[in-house]
Each structure stands twice: as C-alpha cells, then as structure tokens.
C-alpha cells in the first residue's frame, strides 16, 4: 500500500495552487480530503507525478449566508456540513446528505469539493447538489466561472472542470417556508456508497407542487436530474398515488450501472422506490406535517 513516487506540494493560497496546477498540467492531481485519491494511489491505479494538497490552503472552508444563498467553501468537510447550524436551519438537505456519507472518520476528512470534483457515480452529494440547483464556482488563473449543478457532471468521474481549474465554492439556496427536501439512500453494504441515492426538493403553493427538483445518484454513470419525475408532478396536488406513479420514471432512459451488489434492473427499480420515499418525506416536510 505504498504509492508510486510523486512530488508533493502544499500551497498556502489559491493563487499558488493555481500556478502549480498550470505548471504541472495533467500530471498533477489535487488532493482535498484524499478519500478517493489516496486509496487509488496506494493501489497504484493512479500515479500522478505531482500532488497538490489543498489542505493547507486558507479560506476554502466556510459556510456562510450571502444574499439568500448559502456559500460553502470547497474544502468544507462532510462533518462540518453535517453539523452546521446554518445549514441545518436553512438547507437541512445538505446536512442530511453529509450525515449519510461513510462513517465518522470519512466525514471528518472528506470534503464537499473533493467529492464533487471526483464525481464518483455512487457518491451521495451529487443527488442533493442537483436537487438544490446549486451553483458551482471554479477558479483558474484565467479567472472565475460558475455553472449550474445540472451542467457540472458530464460522465463517470468526469466533470466540467477543465485542466487548470479548481472547484472553489458551492452555493445552495436557503430553503424557505413551504419548501421541503429529503435524501433517501440504499447503501452498498461494504463500501457505504449509494446503490441508489435520491434527493427531492419540493415547494408547495396552494396545496400544489409548485417547484420540484429530483436528483438521483448511484443509478447511472453520472448523477442526474430525474426530469421525467419532475414533469409528472409539477403543478399537481401531491397524493400518495401521484408520487408513486411519478417515481416510476426515476430511471427512465438511464444507462443503469450493474455490479455485484445490484443489477441494472434492480437499480432502476430501487431508483423508483427511493424516489417515492424521498418525495413523500420532502412533501411531508414542506407541508410541515413531519420533521
């Protein structure tokens, strides 16, 4: 369990990190919490020549409210997100998702930005990030750009991030009254990753589903918005039957993954089950009937 030789850098500032990234190009990998990169390096499945450790970098771990949004620094750990009183009050979906990741040790080290940038098809956050319609901010030496979560995930382990870019901030909305959200997950028994993970966010207006966003992880090569589910619900009055019927569309048109723990068919079926469960819980929370 010893990685191939590499050169280690621990930049103190974002500028320095970006300079290093520019200099070393695709021979460099960014190290955040290290929970995906380090095991791959130790197994020598990944052998970057340069490792740029963002752990010493100041100013990328924060959770703060800005103009009705909550801005989260990319180096914020899962544990900080799980326990943040600001998030628990204004965007509990993210805290609920963080609490579902791995175990205490993983949550103490792993970071939001690291997980999203790695884009593991079974990671938990992507579902919630999609359901929250988060904004992803990426810095490079050329400047700053932001994309919507829906555009961020491109394929298995592949995101919008271009060479030379660092994901620096994730902005999620503060959820107002009448909005409820929930993350429901079927865990892989060995790794704890999501076999299926569904995040649902609904806003009720006059008893109807005014706004709805459903993010699904674990099912396909990348996390996605279950637009078919959303379309089947939008503007309608929430009922047990409607939610169940809409949830049937959760994996429609998706190239479902298959592995030892779940066949493609079972994954698709579970996508429907967990979509319904997440929707039911989100609707109940929006209506204030359940915590």
């Amino acid at each position: 369990m010893i990685p191939a030789p590499f050169e280690y850098h621990a930049p103190k500032s974002l500028e320095e990190a970006l300079r290093l990234l520019d200099r070393h190009g695709d021979e460099a990998k960014l190290l955040a919490g290290g929970h995906s990169l380090l095991p791959m390096m130790k197994l020598r499945l990944a052998a970057p020549r340069f490792v740029i450790d963002l752990g010493r970098l100041k100013g990328l771990d924060y959770i703060r409210e800005e103009q009705g949004m909550i801005a989260i620094g990319a180096m914020t750990t899962h544990a900080e997100i799980e326990n943040s009183s600001l998030l628990r009050a204004k965007c509990p979906l993210l805290s609920e998702t963080a609490a579902a990741i791995g175990d205490v040790q993983v949550r103490n080290r792993g970071t939001l930005g690291g997980s999203l940038a790695h884009a593991d098809p079974a990671a938990d956050y992507p579902a919630s990030i999609l359901a929250l319609e988060a904004q992803m901010t990426m810095n490079s030496s050329m400047g700053v750009r932001a994309v919507d979560a829906a555009e961020f995930f491109l394929d298995m382990l592949t995101t919008q991030l271009r060479p030379g870019e660092i994901l620096t901030e994730i902005r999620v909305p503060a959820l107002g009254k009448g909005t409820g959200a929930a993350y429901c997950k079927l865990s892989q028994p060995a790794s704890g990753y999501a076999v299926v993970g569904v995040a649902a966010r609904v806003t009720l207006a006059a008893g109807k589903l005014a706004q709805i966003a459903v993010g699904v992880t674990g099912v396909g090569p990348k996390a996605y918005r279950a637009v078919n589910v959303e379309d089947a619900l939008r503007g309608k009055k929430a009922s047990e039957k409607l939610l169940a019927e809409a949830a049937r569309h959760a994996a429609r048109g998706v190239e479902a993954l298959a592995d030892l723990h779940a066949s493609a068919g079972y994954r698709s079926e579970m996508a429907a089950v967990f979509t319904r469960r997440a929707l039911e819980r989100a609707v109940a929370r929006a209506a204030g009937t359940k915590a």
Binding site: Q188, P189, A190, S191, L260, H261
Partner: peptide, 23 residues
C-alpha cells in the same frame, strides 16, 4: 447476510477488498 468471495469466470477474485467484500 453479507459475505461472499466471488471469483469471476476467469478466476479473478472480484470481491478483492473491503469496498466490495461486505463484512
């Protein structure tokens, strides 16, 4: 309920670590 050492048809142990071998 959980454990299973799975060799594929080529004789590769595909539950070769704790990410897939469920304790």
């Amino acid at each position: 309920m959980f454990e299973e050492a799975v060799y594929d048809e080529h004789g590769q142990l595909i539950t070769g670590e704790l990410m897939d071998y469920a304790l």
